[in-house]
Computed example of a mutant assay.
Amino acid sequence: MTELRTLLTKGLRPGVYRWPSDTTTDQVRRAATEAGWGFVLLDTSELHDKSGFLDLCATAFDLPRWFGRNWDALADSLSDRSTGEPEIVLWAGLHHLLEHDHDTVDVALQIFTEDVTASGQLRVLIQEHPDAETPDLLSSQPVL
């Protein structure tokens, strides 16, 4: 986990990054906390659709009750976050959701890469399974 801690300390740029699955959630959480960053876990390994994803985001990001549970509201809510500290988002289970609802994954990644990184707060780590192929929609993202 020293690699992540070093990257955070040196100022990891906002964006979406592939991250190896052999790193546990607790290790990522600990590295983020030790570097003074916030930590958010998005575990979509049990989700099947957009509604479930938006509900998960509302809870994980502690969005306000008025959050409209649509894509525009998610983009606005995340880009307006003013927690005062950069945050690491660990997205586990992307491939499971991708199997059930490719469009939801595509739009979520678009929000994370375009709208949210403009705010400079979020760095999203996509936790990959070693035996899973990374979908094409990630091919243009930075690789750590």
Rank of each mutant, 00 (worst) to 15 (best):
T2G: 00
T2S: 12
L4K: 01
L7H: 06
G11Q: 05
G11R: 04
P14D: 03
W19S: 00
P20L: 01
T24Q: 01
T24M: 00
T25L: 00
D26H: 06
Q27F: 00
R30S: 13
A32P: 07
E34M: 07
A35T: 03
G36I: 04
L42C: 11
T44M: 07
S45E: 09
S45N: 13
S45H: 10
L47S: 04
H48A: 11
K50F: 05
G52C: 07
G52Y: 04
F53M: 14
L54W: 02
L56Q: 10
A60H: 05
A60L: 07
D62E: 14
P64L: 01
W66Q: 10
R69C: 05
N70F: 04
W71Q: 07
D76C: 02
S77P: 01
D80N: 15
D80E: 14
T83P: 08
T83S: 15
E85R: 15
E87W: 12
L90G: 08
L90V: 03
W91I: 03
H95F: 15
L98V: 06
L98R: 15
L98Y: 15
E99L: 15
H102C: 11
D103T: 14
D103V: 14
D106V: 06
A108R: 04
I111G: 11
I111N: 08
F112E: 03
T113E: 10
D115N: 09
D115L: 00
V116F: 00
A118L: 11
R123M: 11
Q127G: 03
E128T: 13
D131F: 09
D131G: 08
P135F: 05
D136R: 15
D136V: 10
D136K: 11
L144T: 03
L144D: 03
